[in-house]
Amino acid sequence: MGFHIVVCAGIVPDPLQTLEPITGPQGPALKNEMMLPAVLDPWAKHALFEAAHLAAKTPDSKVWLVSMAPKTKLQQVMMSIAQKASFELVALDGPASGFTDSQAVAEALAAAINAISGLDRKRLLVFGGWESASRGAGATLQIVGERLGIVEQFQGVDELSVTASGSLRILERVEGGMHQISHCDGPPAVLGWATGSLPEPPNNPQVGMANMRTLMPALQKATAAGVAVDGKSFTSVEVPKQRRDTRIVKDASTDDIAREIMEWIKG
């Protein structure tokens, strides 16, 4: 029996864009947020690739992608990501801001997962990134799990294999560059992925077009997800302005530089 894999993935600004906070009507926000090019959250993207990979090698499996963001941003990101993995989109029209609280996001996601028709809880694996590149809370997925009543939870996952008996063997990142190896009887389970080990799949227009059949209807019917402020307020939000006085050592001999570095390391 295959898996029913639900991947929770937000969208974030394309890496290396210049980010600047502003105060919006609902609290802190990013300047020009709607203009910044967006990508699927990097860790969640790994989770999606792992899900697609697992589903492809486990017959009778299916992948859903549950994502909350402003509808137009979601559409932009889907154009790229839909070419890389097969999934059915569950779209929530809501904020993608890192300043929205994880509890509120998690509740919206859990409600959306509960509403997926045909989802078999006994085969359910909830995937996501172990944290987002926006909120960076590392909390959303655990709360989704709690809301769904799943206490088999793993974070910083780099590897998942299914044993002959159907149990799950999971490698989680722990301190010191090591991995903890755990065995879980089977689904349901929640897995927050780190990078995993799969390369980014190539763009496949056929995959994209197959996804399109559910993508556009999902986007068109996406309803506004209510996201409560939930008792969190910010007293300051800033980009630290610290600028160091960089001493530039030019035209020094490599011997001198090496000596200076050596003294600095030892000092």
Partner: peptide, 8 residues
């Protein structure tokens, strides 16, 4: 009515 595929 149209599919747009960037990165292609």
């Amino acid at each position: 009515a149209v599919q747009l595929w960037p990165g292609s």
